[in-house]
Simulated scan of single mutants.
Amino acid sequence: MPISDSQKKGLRELLLNEKNLAVLLHLAKGATKNMCKTEDPEEALRLITTHIPDIYILLSKRAITKELLFTYLSKRGADAATDFSKADLIAKVIECWKDEHQPSNELSEGQTSSLLHKQSEEDYPIHTIARKFGEWFFDRFNADTLSLVDLWADAALHLTIIASDGINECKCSTAAEVLSALTSAKQQFDFYFNPNLTHAGIQGRMDYYGQFVVICCGTLHSRDSCVGIFECAFGLLQDPFADNNWKPKKVKCFLKSEVQPPELHYLCLSETLQKALELPIRTDDLNGLL
């Protein structure tokens, strides 16, 4: 997500203070690959917003800790539960900035009404359904409760695993084989899939055959450590015999181990989903299912 003017104001509040000045200067140095070692806070802020043009990537930097974000939210009286992840805090901070830094220009009654009813892209039904599906799928998958009835009988899978010992690929074309291949990979490597359920990590598209495509990414974890990333594309069709629920017909999954994996993974940085990101986005209610 590009850094908006309101988010730049929020970053100023977050970082341009005595307590977090060292974090700001560290970020500026890292953003310029140590080419610029400014001690001027205003210049440092300009550098990081110029060289790190995505607000999610910026707030995910290791220098911006969960404690820093939690303290910032607490001082503003925002509701930040103690059972949280860094991704949750980032989303909450961005939401606060959206609410606090709206343009203050006077608007006519008609303009105000239009602004209030204007729908942001991340709230399009196609993206809302994608997030609900992603949360549902990975909750079941991680809990080992995903079953054959959750897939189309002729579901197909293309699974690619890149590890230190090489590349493994698997293709199969029945629900039983798909479920077996996914489960085997998960158990073999003791993976836990942590999807990025923000708009920057999961979205919906429509392919040229009218199939609903969910594209998502996240990090792979083994026990208490992050060990890699994953990228998935699900081709979904509605099942009229299952309350018109969306079920995977095609699954493409890319798993990659990394020595220093990111704290969060983003669609804009994906290796395998760039073509899918170019597919059309529907703005209607997908046959009124929501």
Rank of each mutant, 00 (worst) to 15 (best):
N194A: 12
A91C: 14
D79R: 13
G204M: 04
T71D: 12
R205F: 01
S120K: 13
H101W: 14
A143P: 03
N196L: 05
L146V: 02
P103N: 02
K98D: 07
G134T: 09
D83M: 01
L157K: 10
C170K: 14
S85F: 08
A175S: 12
A176D: 08
S184V: 07
Q187W: 06
F193S: 00
I94R: 00
S108T: 09
Q203T: 10
E109Y: 11
Q111Y: 06
S164G: 11
Y192M: 13
Q102T: 09
T128S: 15
N142M: 02
G134N: 11
D144E: 07
A91R: 12
S184D: 12
K66S: 09
N105Q: 11
T112D: 13
V178A: 02
A87T: 03
S108F: 02
K132L: 15
L159E: 00
Y192T: 11
L151W: 05
D79L: 14
C96E: 11
Q102S: 13
S164N: 14
T145W: 00
D154N: 13
L197G: 09
L159K: 12
G77R: 04
D83G: 03
G201H: 03
A175R: 05
K86L: 05
Y208G: 12
K66R: 15
P125G: 05
T198G: 07
L68M: 11
A200Y: 06
I202Y: 05
G166C: 09
K86M: 05
C96W: 15
G77P: 07
R205W: 03
D139M: 12
V213K: 10
M206R: 07
T145S: 11
L182Q: 00
T160V: 15
L116S: 06
E122V: 10
L151I: 07
K118F: 14
A80P: 03
T183Y: 01
G77M: 01
I129T: 10
I161Y: 01
D190I: 13
K86P: 01
F141S: 02
S120N: 09
A81F: 11
G77V: 03
T160C: 12
L148S: 11
S173V: 08
D83Y: 04
E109C: 04
Q111F: 07
F138Y: 14
A91E: 09
L69G: 01
D190M: 12
K171F: 04
G201N: 02
I129E: 07
L73W: 06
V178T: 06
T160M: 11
N168I: 13
Y124F: 14
F138D: 01
T128C: 10
T145L: 09
S180K: 14
A163S: 12
D88I: 06
I90A: 06
Q102A: 14
A163L: 02
A185Q: 00
F84R: 04
T128A: 13
P103S: 02
K92C: 04
T112N: 12
F137E: 02
L89R: 00
T82Y: 10
I162Q: 15
F84P: 00
G204I: 04
K186T: 00
I167H: 10
K66H: 10
F137V: 04
